[in-house]
Amino acid sequence: MAIAKAERLMNLALCLLGTGRALTKRELRTSIEAYLEVGSDDAFNRMFERDKDDLRELGMVIETVENLDGDVGYVARRDRNQLPPVTLDAEEAAALGLAAKVWQQARLAGAASGALQKLRAAGMPLEEDREAYSALEPRVPAGEAAFEPLMIACRDRRPVSFDYRKSNAARPGTRHVEPWALECWRGHWYLAGFDRDRGAVRVFRLSRIVGRVRSRSGTFTAEVPGQVAVRESVARWAGEHATGQARILLRAGAGYPLRARATVVSERDGGWDELEIPYGHGLGAWLAEFGPDVIVLEPAELRADVVDRLRAVAKG
């Protein structure tokens, strides 16, 4: 729905900008395919008024012309809808180039590439400082199918629902969420938002979303905070804010993220290594993801937590 609306707004803007005279609503309706698909005149009028208001809110100057053969017309004059000249210094151009190179998946890759091409065509020196950042190859993977619909839902403040499988659950459960923000942390994407069923803020890992994300009607019921600390919440639940040390056995050659967290690593017989890692809330869920490659030695409550999670998955 959000993509269809964006396309409709773009077509309306092009119509208003692409003619030297004002166009009536009747002319616009016959020129834009999405309007032709609207059944009744009342539904079209409501849609057109919303679209016109949205374009104006985005900064487009739309003039109303009275007494146009008895009808009201609309026009967006090019001289009133032009951006001032864009100038970038070498550092700004380099930063923009890096930002565009980050996105390698999802539809943002094409948008970023197109934006750079337009700036180059306008004479922006995007390649002048290439040597300063050519050695850097940033990547932000966005391969999860849930990424794009959730990104749009966050932007449009639209509630969603999806099936979500927790690390200790054999089957997914449906979540009804007011999405706030997306953030990538340690190679995984997370969504922060208000879980309506639980009446509390929750963070969801996109790779655990099963099936498609379904958009829902209505408005948010919880206030969106000015700053959503996704990374801090995930770090806290993953044991980043540790309260102690845990000892685990890790199969040799496996679990590199755990090795990066370890404060002590020592070899053991039988193809195992012993690690000491910071222990905090949520560590059990993370360790369970490594399955048979991890054995928890201590503390006892962590070992019991991981065993319970693995047994719950096995029952499914």
Rank of each mutant, 00 (worst) to 15 (best):
G255Y: 05
K101C: 09
D269C: 02
L191S: 04
D273N: 05
G211Y: 10
L98H: 07
S113M: 02
G70S: 04
A252F: 10
E223S: 15
V228Y: 06
D69S: 08
V75F: 01
L36H: 09
G218T: 07
V228C: 09
G187M: 00
E301K: 14
A304H: 11
G97F: 05
A76H: 14
A135K: 12
E7V: 06
Q117D: 07
V307S: 10
L191I: 13
R56Q: 14
A34P: 03
L28Q: 04
L283W: 03
D269I: 03
E49W: 00
R155K: 05
A43Q: 09
K315Y: 04
A13G: 08
L116F: 05
M124E: 06
P141I: 06
Y256S: 11
G20S: 01
F204W: 14
A109K: 11
V72Q: 07
W189Q: 08
R8G: 03
G253E: 03
D269S: 13
V230S: 05
N11R: 14
L150Q: 05
D156Q: 15
M124W: 03
T64Y: 00
L136P: 03
S31K: 11
T243L: 06
V313C: 03
E127H: 09
E137H: 13
M10A: 03
R186A: 12
H188N: 15
F290Q: 10
D129I: 00
A288P: 08
P299F: 11
K166Y: 12
W237P: 00
A4N: 10
P84R: 07
R139M: 05
N168V: 00
A145Y: 01
G143K: 13
S207R: 15
A13W: 15
G143T: 13
A43Y: 05
M124R: 13
L28R: 02
A262V: 00
E49Q: 12
R78K: 07
R21S: 02
A229V: 10
E127M: 10
A106D: 12
L182V: 12
A142D: 04
L68R: 02
L182P: 11
S266A: 10
T87Q: 11
A76Y: 13
C154D: 07
L9H: 08
E274R: 15
